[in-house]
Every structure is written in structure tokens, then in C-alpha cells.
């Protein structure tokens, strides 16, 4: 799941300042799970905008607004209302906001802050385990991502600052390289213990973007 948090409502109000007729699109996938863009949050936003004197032209929750195929199908339900809409508040991650903005060709206002790919512990408690860094090294690290879980993002750690158990930066958390070592030893992955990773190729992450 991609974790989002609700934006400060003042920022949304300011972005909508010059628009009167506003639509609202929620995300029934990730943003719904983390309580930022489900049907309840869409209704809350509708009430807020009406209370602020806006005319809410439509509300809709789309299963995956980041998927153009799904968006193309679902947006037809509000096709007529969209013609009469000046701006749309999108309650999804940044990918959903941009996908919708590109598709509808109207002013799109993000209602959330995008955080990270998250593991859900409980609703409201999430962990970042994967940074989507292009070249997954989990098969060589005992199955834990040192790039994401080490605050320094080291490939070949640990750094000089850990205390044998815990991280230098987050002193209440275990150093991921200590954990990685334990797991590789547990799985008898001797061949991986001495593996040296070359410096990352950041050129890969530029190639995946599209303007």
C-alpha cells in the first residue's frame, strides 16, 4: 500500500480559492485503507467544501485512480458533471492526483501528502520497508532492505556509529545490518555474507520517469 496523510485543510482551501465549482475524487484502494481518501473522507471533504461556500458538482470513489484503464472507465459516471466543474480535489497519492490531472485536463488539488510504500501494522501504524529503488537486493541480504531500513541507505554497512545492536540514528531500533547478518547466518547464506555491492546506479531511477 502507498501511505498518504491528510493535508492541512488550509492548504486545500488556498489552492481552491479562485474556484467555485469543485468535484471530489477519492481512492478506494490505498488511500481508503489509510483513511485519507475512502468514501468517509470524501463525504467529510464534501461537507467542508459546502460549508466553505463551494458548489460541489460531484463526488466519486475510484478503485485505482492511478490506473488509467480503471480511471477511463469510472470517470464516465461523472462525465456530465465534470463539464460543469472548475477544479477537482483528489484524495489519493501523488500518482493518482497526477493521473487524474492529466486525464481530465482541469485544475487538480491534492488532498493528501504522499509518504511511502507501507506495511500496515494496524490502521494508523505503518512501516516503510521498501523504497522502490529499481534494483532489489533482498535475495542477497537475508530478506531485509538495508537501503530503506538504514537511515543512511547504505549498501555495505554497518556504519561506524552503531552500538552492536541498535542504530546510531534511531537508538530504539535494531541496526538493519545486524539483522541482515543474523538472517544470512540463519539461512546459511555464506556466499552472500561477503558480497560487496557496487555503488548504486541512480541513472536507473531517471529512466522510469515520464513528463
Amino acid at each position: 500500500m502507498f501511505l498518504t496523510e491528510k493535508k492541512d485543510i488550509k492548504e486545500i482551501d488556498e489552492a481552491l480559492n479562485k474556484y467555485k465549482k469543485v468535484g471530489i475524487i477519492g481512492c478506494a484502494s490505498c488511500a481508503s485503507v489509510c483513511l485519507t481518501g475512502g468514501s468517509k473522507e470524501v463525504r467529510e471533504m464534501e461537507k467542508h467544501l459546502k460549508d466553505s461556500g463551494k458548489e460541489v458538482t460531484f463526488t466519486i470513489s475510484i478503485d485505482e485512480p492511478c490506473d488509467k484503464r480503471v480511471l477511463r472507465e469510472d470517470i464516465r459516471f461523472v462525465e456530465d458533471e465534470m463539464k460543469n466543474t472548475e477544479a477537482v480535489v483528489v484524495l489519493s497519492c501523488g500518482t493518482g492526483v497526477q493521473t487524474i490531472g492529466e486525464f481530465i485536463g482541469k485544475k487538480t488539488v491534492s488532498g493528501t501528502d504522499s509518504k511511502y510504500i507501507a506495511q500496515t501494522e494496524h490502521i494508523g501504524e505503518y512501516n516503510a520497508l521498501c523504497g522502490g529503488c529499481d534494483e532489489c537486493r533482498l535475495n542477497f541480504t537475508g530478506g531485509v532492505c538495508t537501503i530503506t531500513l538504514c537511515p543512511k541507505g547504505l549498501l555495505n554497512g554497518p556504519c561506524e556509529g552503531h552500538n552492536g545492536i541498535n542504530c546510531e540514528v534511531y537508538e530504539d531500533k535494531e541496526c538493519v545490518f545486524v539483522k541482515s547478518y543474523e538472517l544470512m547466518t540463519k539461512y546459511s547464506e555464506e556466499e552472500n555474507l561477503l558480497k560487496i555491492f557496487n555503488p548504486r546506479d541512480y541513472g536507473l531511477s531517471v529512466k522510469r520517469t515520464k513528463i
Partner: peptide, 19 residues
């Protein structure tokens, strides 16, 4: 500059020696 607090430090040192 390395730590010397756990077995994983020895591993890093070994890698550094190898290079």
C-alpha cells in the same frame, strides 16, 4: 573508519580488506 561492536563489523572489515 569502522565499528567494532559485533560480528557484522568483522564481516565489513573482511570485505574492506578484500578490496
Amino acid at each position: 573508519v569502522v565499528a567494532l561492536s559485533s560480528a557484522v563489523d568483522g564481516l565489513k572489515i573482511k570485505k574492506l580488506i578484500n578490496i
